[in-house]
Design a protein around this nucleic acid. Structure first.
Length: 479
RNA sequence: GCGGGCAUAGCUUAGCUGGUAGAGCAGGGGACUCUUAAUCCCAAGGUCGAAGGUUCGAAUCCUUCUGCCCGCACCA
């Protein structure tokens, strides 16, 4: 390299002072005042530049904190000052200087020395309107994060939320584990899986649709409070509320049933809101919603009676009556809908919209829940609940089925459905049954869709706004 | 998967019933030593998403394709 060739990409600039610290330390400086002993080095991205001949202002962004740089020809000399004015918006620079406040009261760093740390050779989106184009925002999230600080703030809140949940659960004695994402059978949920192939084993593997069956194997193995926060993968449509990979928290707690899980949920959710948002009141669709416990419990049977004028037993006994009741309320049904599908439609389209404040919908029909324990009062029901907030399901939980014979029967019913062409039905997992045969302690389990809960907390409509890199069709140059 | 909408410069956009594209910011040159959407002057930047078609003439009308957005279906 030639000796006088400018360095466009430097190696290090350390130690440095975070702009946040400078703001905290010198925020209350008087306008026009220089801070004594405030020699510092700051670094960040040039966001804007205001040049006034022999003096220049630059807005520097260090992470998510902005600070103004002031440079003039007196301090730097003609040559160095001239180079400084040639900085482009987007460049990353390091500065040595001291802190002062301008006559207009803007906290600033007076530039005594500066160095280019990284050259930006591609123009940044416009400063005033930011980056608006949705496609560019999602495809080039890096540019979105620079141009739209409020987007960065939202995504950061998501990170804070996950972190808070992890700490909360650890505080309750739960151990975080990691279970296979590549699974030889896809279980724990009803969904279409992604399939891949392992060359050395010469076998197809599925990306997990849920970690459930592995976590319950851990219950058998003696982990009596476990959780996992991780990605699930479902090969289904993409929408405002669906991304092919999404983040779930699942936990399993031995020696309790769904009652204790409900208590955990109604305590944890407001606690997380308090920590991350600073309040237990969220605003969704212009409704103010108080998250604090207690949350009312209402049975599926009651919900159907209220919204469909049919009991669960009546719907089970008479498919046609359920179908008619739905159609009368302008809920579309499909000819192949069985009892389970009709109940599901009634809940989604009629019952949930009435549940704005947090509510536990409890006691589901057996047919919807092949992994849940039967209800002691009614063998046609299972001890299952879903927490509903603002009409949205934010999780799913039940007393875990630990009777291997019952579980085998339920798997076989699912296998029957599969044989009849239902490609999403559950498969028989012989290893899981073997684990249950060793004896699984009674336990409650819970799954919470992190993305959707964060959407609720932030009051955003699109799942893409809470996922750093949402799935899109690949760009030309990838295909 | 089906239906509707959108696609103009790096970014944000104007362009009406068809007459051959205009601006702001960014970038280039110049002036200016406390500005903060700095200001002022100058110059440059567009195969109007792609391919066909209609027309003397298409950013504009039609067809197909691609991508995104929004509904619906499936699902969390």
């Amino acid at each position: 390299m030639m000796a006088d060739e400018p360095v466009l990409y430097a190696r290090r600039f350390w130690p440095r002072t975070a702009v946040g610290e400078i703001r905290a330390q010198y925020g209350d400086l008087e306008a026009g005042e220089n801070a004594e002993g405030s020699e510092c080095r700051v670094a960040g991205r040039v966001m804007s530049r205001r040049e006034h001949g022999k003096a220049t202002f630059i807005t520097l962004r260090d992470g998510w904190d902005d600070i103004q740089l002031f440079a003039n020809v007196n301090a730097l000399g003609d040559e160095v000052y001239r180079e400084f004015t040639r900085l482009d918006i987007g460049d990353i620079v390091g500065v040595d200087g001291y802190v002062f406040k301008t006559r207009r009261g803007e906290l600033s760093v007076f530039v005594e020395k500066w160095v280019l740390l990284s050259k930006s050779v591609r123009p940044l989106p416009e400063k005033w309107h930011g980056l608006q184009d949705r496609e560019t925002r999602y495809r080039q999230r890096y540019a979105d994060l620079i141009a739209n600080p409020e987007v960065a703030a939202q995504l950061k809140t998501r990170c804070a939320f996950v972190s808070a949940m992890r700490r909360y659960l650890e505080g309750q004695g739960f151990i975080e584990v990691e279970t296979p994402i590549l699974q030889p059978l896809h279980g724990g949920a009803i969904a279409k899986p992604f399939v891949t192939h392992h060359k050395a084993l010469d076998t197809d593997l599925y990306l997990r649709i849920a970690p459930e069956l592995y976590l319950k194997r851990l219950l058998v193995g003696g982990f009596d409070r476990v959780f996992e926060i991780g990605k699930n993968f479902r090969n289904e449509g993409i929408s405002l509320v669906h991304n092919p990979e999404f983040t779930m928290m699942e936990l399993y707690w031995a020696y309790v049933d769904y009652n204790e899980i409900m208590e955990l949920v109604e305590q944890m959710i407001p606690a997380l809101a308090q920590e991350v948002l600073g309040t237990t009141v969220i605003t969704v669709d212009e409704n103010e919603i108080e998250l604090a416990a207690p949350w009312p419990r209402v049975t599926i049977d009651e919900l159907l009676r209220e919204n469909l004028d049919l009991s669960l037993a009546e719907m089970r006994a008479n498919n046609g009556a359920g179908r008619r009741a739905l159609e009368e309320r302008r809920v579309q049904t499909e000819p192949e809908d069985d009892f389970a599908a009709l109940v599901d439609r009634a809940l989604k389209h009629l019952a949930w919209p009435t549940l704005v404040s947090p509510t536990f919908a409890i006691d589901y029909p057996l047919e919807l829940s092949p992994l849940a324990k039967r209800h002691p009062d009614d063998p046609q029901l299972v001890e299952r609940f879903q927490p509903i907030i603002a009409g949205r399901e934010i999780g799913n939980a039940f007393s875990e089925l630990n009777d291997p014979a019952d579980q085998r029967g339920r798997f076989e019913e699912q296998a029957e459905k599969k044989a009849q062409g239902d490609e999403e039905a559950h498969v028989v997992d012989e290893d899981y049954l073997r684990a249950l045969e060793y004896g699984m302690p009674p336990a409650g389990g819970l799954g919470i869709g992190i993305d959707r809960l964060v959407m609720l907390f932030l009051g955003v409509d699109s799942i893409r706004d809470v996922i750093l890199f949402p799935q899109l069709r690949p760009e030309e140059f990838f295909r």
